[in-house]
Design a protein around this nucleic acid. Structure first.
Lengths: 162, 162
DNA sequence: CAGTATCCCAAGCGATACTG
DNA sequence: CAGTATCGCTTGGGATACTG
């Protein structure tokens, strides 16, 4: 019955493939770590937010921390695990596309800068030999695993771009 | 009442923020352009697939083509527009994360290669001065637009990573 | 092929209210 | 604060069947 393609994209989407999950991560990347603030900044319904946070914690993307300041009630916060931090390119790629195709006349609401040099940062496709590819993915080719050991130039493999 | 944050991530998710939208795009990037095959490879319900294709066309990400081979019934196909092709980094970033954190023991189902040199391709964060940042986004800082003209080093701006 | 139509159930949304 | 609970409504999901 030709079940759906086995694919890392689909598996990743099982974890972060819903609107609120990604927006929650955006907030955490921006330094917002607490329930109420995430709720306010994303607009996610509280019940759904609870659900999503639980899922992200279960998936190992977020960790639930608890801390108490002197004499205060204990508080919770959500922080990124290493796996969570590695989702950064997903967020920057989404943001970059929105900046380019959906920004209003005032331009992008947020800019990413390299702390060291202050220059704008963007997502790029690079190959291990150091070549940079265009964002459109021209020159990119997808090879099924069982053929992956072959060298370049096999015209019968599915191509990544026309 | 503190409406949700204005953000390009959210705007992009209005277009491609649902599971099936991204999986449709994965297929088109892999060269699958027809309704039934996309249906089979993604597993999306036909009605939902119709809906998503319409939305992607409306958003200018896909274009609906029609062509007829000699003496055959006309066929439809979906192809990427320029805006659609520019979503490639989003897909590669999702795939890359899944390859790393969710691949089974057999490894990633699909590998991306540079056509010219055969080397594996990946998503990276780079700054305009040519520095490459770690995927975790360390050294990355998000600056609100109204402050974006300032130079680096303003500690009061929200930081991109702890 | 490329969709529409239908059915039924699960999940999401938005608002609001309550609890430790 | 950080959630749970509840409610009414809309949308999505999966299956299956039909049409030009």
């Amino acid at each position: 019955m030709s079940e759906p393609r086995a694919c890392s994209v689909a598996r990743t989407l099982d974890v972060v493939g819903e609107r609120w999950s990604l927006l929650v991560l955006r907030e955490v990347f921006l330094g917002v770590r607490r329930f109420d603030l995430i709720h306010k900044h994303t607009g996610a319904p509280r019940a759904v937010l609870t659900e999503r946070l639980r899922r992200l914690v279960d998936a190992g993307v977020l960790r639930r921390g608890e801390y108490r300041e002197e004499g205060r009630r204990p508080r919770h916060e959500y922080e990124l695990t290493e796996a969570g931090r590695e989702l950064r390119p997903v967020l920057t790629a989404l943001m970059q596309w929105g900046d380019r195709y959906l920004a209003g006349p005032e331009g992008p609401p947020l800019q990413l800068r390299h702390t060291d040099c202050g220059a704008p940062v963007r997502t790029a496709l690079i190959c291990e030999d150091g070549h940079q590819l265009p964002d459109s993915g021209e020159g990119l080719r997808a090879v099924p695993r069982h053929l992956a050991s072959r060298e370049a130039g096999d015209g019968s493999a599915p191509r990544g771009a026309e």
